[in-house]
Write a protein that binds this DNA or RNA. Structure first.
Length: 772
DNA sequence: TACCAGAGGAG
DNA sequence: AAATCCTCTGGTA
């Protein structure tokens, strides 16, 4: 048994060699493939294939020209398959060929060579990797940082922590202290020695996967710089090749050949929705436990003049970074193994890929199997054009504002995927020539072929059917380990199925089709609107709805079983009229809910669990004081049904804030820097806070989340905004936190119940309590 | 006060 | 480098 961990190509004697990095029962294996050459397809102008073939034959660096038949928009076409001697010549040859008189188009010239091999060979990365018991290690570094942000030119690495899933835990450092007693600490001579020890350990312990937390942007590039300083070859690769930093779009990826490096930071940003993505926050999200943390600005001081307690705490912190990263990796990697297997992308790629890239990888593999010509990547000009053409999305119902009791929720199961499948929505079936009258119609005026199944609907259906099979197995399975394995499998399939609609509308997609994306959403609107129209005839009223869901209340004085009977006949009626594969489901019953505006509401379920949507409580750019107060008010209204307590909660919190005793952790606001720092026309509080912090040596760039507090000193809000690291406890603007945080968050809710702002601020009388 | 840029959520 | 719809803030004129 073996599992494919990595693949690349190299050049030997000017010939290409594909290398496949396997983990096997015995150890590892690097298989080399010599007989695979890059190629591209060329579509000739109508009837000119022979002329074109002749023209291409005259060009140098071409190994072979051969006629073949491929599918283009579900039609068989004659094309030329051009084999090239080396991938490095592909771009130039493509440019030459596409200018030839008889050439219509060049295809598949831009598929990276190693990926091309994986596609054509049908190899599945990470197959059986669970059975092979992969050796997974994590590492983290602490760096000397007297100027806050370390500079790899001068600031050495002072600790490297390491943990693997075979029991080894280490912190390598080169300073000790009297009485130091931590069994995992190994004190070596200097920075060079700890780096060498790290490299040696990865190799000796036959590590298969290296994980880090932000290793792409910090640990690996820093380690690389420091290794170069010491003239150490950072030969971590399974073939002893050095670590390589690769460009991946806007970001960098640290690549170790044959021992894939998986950076958990981008993985966590994709999977979790939390206010911040520090290792501590993510660790808490996964395990529910607090992780040790120490102040970054204290590190250099501790290193220079350590006390026993401080140094021990520093070492413990360092160790916990590696063990936490390992724990996170062990938790999240299984999903990525599965995504890797489904999309047949290397784990190095798939762990860093976005939804669009994953869908595309999957489609390229499936296209190869069906001999479908892969569409080219759009040029920047086309991408720009696509970005300018927008289309309409889901339908949102204006909510009936206020409190409602006994709410029923219905929603369409996988609305967009089920529309794609049941209406056969695909670029190749769009406005086909064969079934104009009898086709699947879209409200947009386009129609979709009924005779031939489209490429994307077919594959989407495949994903969903596999998911159904797996879910059946999952329900029958007793062994918790196997259950978890199956659950991860179905999650991965769901993830990919749900990405298909977005892919149609993604301007950089090869299979982009605005008509398809538009048809999907238009049909979605049609079905939800038709559903809403017949609601009254079953004795219900619509409280709210968004895209694929409707919240209903009973309106004709029915009770208990009678309500459920009506709900059942409502469902039956809707479902009898839906196309096969689409289904409206009863999703839940909520004794009470409060609806504020579109996309902002809260309901409580029978178990007393509060479900809050869109409100400040759910947003990272609001302070905890406001979020917690809002949550308390919602609890009082929905759970305890004691609205008069709400005013007291708010008044008490206002007093607390005035006292100046709210801890900073409840005052911080998190906002992401979404643009390049220089691109801002309007600099909001987070940007101005970041800029001030940058003057003090902190680094900020696009993608970072700024955690700031509105302090006492300054004129405007932005002026008062300071990154939390530079704020003293108690230094906060009470006026701002009362009037711009707590009050707006709670007033919005109370106003939806009919209170006025003046009443709530004690200026008026509380007479509008009746009604609940 | 009206408008905008910017952000982050829902589905 | 998945889509659109929507609310809300802080700054500006």
């Amino acid at each position: 048994m073996k599992t494919l961990l990595d693949a690349d190509y190299t050049t030997r004697d000017d010939k290409t060699v594909i290398r496949l990095f396997y983990k096997t029962d015995e150890g590892r294996e690097i298989k080399e493939i010599y007989d695979f050459q890059p190629y591209m397809y060329v579509l000739p102008k109508e009837g000119e294939i022979d002329k074109l073939s002749e023209e291409i034959g005259k060009i140098s660096n071409i190994k072979n020209v051969e006629k073949t038949r491929m599918l283009e928009m579900e039609q068989e076409v004659d094309v030329l398959r051009i084999t090239v001697n080396h991938p490095r010549n592909v771009p130039d040859l493509r440019a030459i060929i596409r200018e030839l008189e008889n050439c219509e188009e060049v295809r598949e010239a831009h598929i990276p060579f190693a990926e091309r091999y994986l596609t054509d060979s049908g190899l599945v990365p990470m197959e059986n990797c669970e059975k092979l018991n992969l050796r997974i290690a994590s590492f983290d570094m602490e760096v000397y940082n007297p100027d806050r942000e370390p500079d790899s030119e001068k600031d050495p690495i002072i600790m490297i922590s390491y943990a693997d899933n075979h029991g080894l835990k280490k912190v390598w450092t080169y300073k000790t202290i009297e009485g130091l007693d931590l069994d995992y600490v190994e004190v070596l001579g200097d920075e060079k020695e700890i780096i060498e020890k790290f490299i040696e350990t990865i190799k000796k312990r036959e590590i298969d996967i290296i994980t880090t937390y932000n290793g792409d942007n910090f640990d690996f590039p820093y380690l690389k710089d420091r290794s170069e300083k010491h003239k150490i070859k950072l030969s971590l690769g399974a073939d002893n090749s050095p670590l390589r930093m690769e460009r991946r779009g806007m970001n960098m990826g640290a690549r170790v050949k044959g021992r894939p490096h998986v950076d958990m930071y981008p993985v966590c940003r994709q999977i979790f929705n939390i206010p911040r993505y520090t290792l501590e926050d993510v660790y808490q999200e996964i395990t529910g436990e607090e992780k040790k943390d120490i102040q970054v600005n204290a590190m250099a001081g501790i290193w220079d003049n350590p006390t026993f307690e401080e140094y021990t705490a520093f070492l413990e912190y360092s160790m916990s970074d590696a063990t936490a990263t390992l724990e996170i990796a062990l938790e999240l990697l299984p999903l990525h193994y599965e995504i890797s297997r489904i999309t047949r992308e290397l784990i190095y790629q798939s762990s860093r890929a976005g939804s669009g890239q994953r869908v595309e990888s999957l489609l390229i593999k499936k296209a190869f199997e069906k001999k479908i010509l892969v569409p080219n990547r759009p040029s920047d000009r086309i991408v720009n054009k696509r970005q300018r053409t927008t289309y309409s999305g889901g339908y949102v119902v204006e909510p009936k504002k206020g409190i409602h009791d006994n709410i029923l929720l219905f929603d369409f199961r996988s609305l967009y995927p089920s529309i794609i499948i049941s209406h056969n929505i695909d670029p190749s079936t769009l406005d086909c020539n064969c079934c104009q009258k009898d086709a699947y119609m879209s409200p947009t005026g386009h129609y979709f072929c009924k005779k031939k199944k489209g490429f994307i609907p077919e594959n989407l259906e495949g994903l969903l059917q596999r998911r159904i099979t797996i879910k059946k197995k999952l329900n029958a399975e007793k062994d918790p380990r196997k259950k978890r394995f199956l659950d991860v499998k179905q999650q991965a399939l769901k993830l990919l199925a749900n990405s298909m609609y977005g892919y149609f509308g993604f301007p950089r997609a090869r299979w982009y089709s605005r008509e398809c994306a538009e048809a999907i959403t238009a049909l979605g609107r049609k079905y939800i609107q038709e559903t809403i129209e017949i609601v009254p005839s079953f004795g219900f009223g619509v409280i709210y709805g968004d895209t694929d869901s409707v919240y209903l209340i009973e309106t004709e004085g029915l009770e208990g079983d009678e309500v459920m009977e009506h709900a059942k006949s409502f469902l039956k009626k809707i479902n009898s009229e839906l196309p096969e594969g689409m289904e409206l489901e009863f999703e839940g019953f909520y004794p009470r809910g409060i609806f504020i505006t579109k996309k902002r509401y809260a309901v409580i379920d029978r178990k007393g669990k509060l479900i809050i949507k869109g409100l400040e409580t759910r947003r990272r750019d609001w302070a905890n004081v406001a979020k917690n107060t809002q949550k308390k008010v919602l609890n009082v209204l929905l759970r305890d049904k004691t609205p008069d307590k709400a005013a007291k909660i708010v008044k008490d919190m206002v007093q607390e804030i005035k006292k100046g005793e709210i801890p900073l952790s409840d005052l911080t606001i998190n906002t992401q820097i979404t643009k390049d720092m220089g691109e801002y026309k309007n600099e909001g509080p987070h940007i101005q806070a970041a800029k001030k912090a940058m003057k003090k040596g902190m680094e900020f760039k696009q993608g970072n989340i700024v955690t700031y507090v509105i302090t006492k000193k300054g004129s405007s809000i932005s002026d008062k905004a300071k990154v939390v690291d530079f704020v003293e406890e108690g230094d906060y603007d009470t006026y701002y936190y009362i009037n711009n945080q707590v009050l707006p968050a709670v007033l919005r809710i109370l106003e939806a119940l009919g209170y006025t702002e003046d009443e709530l601020k004690g200026k008026g009388k509380q007479t509008t309590l009746e009604g609940f």
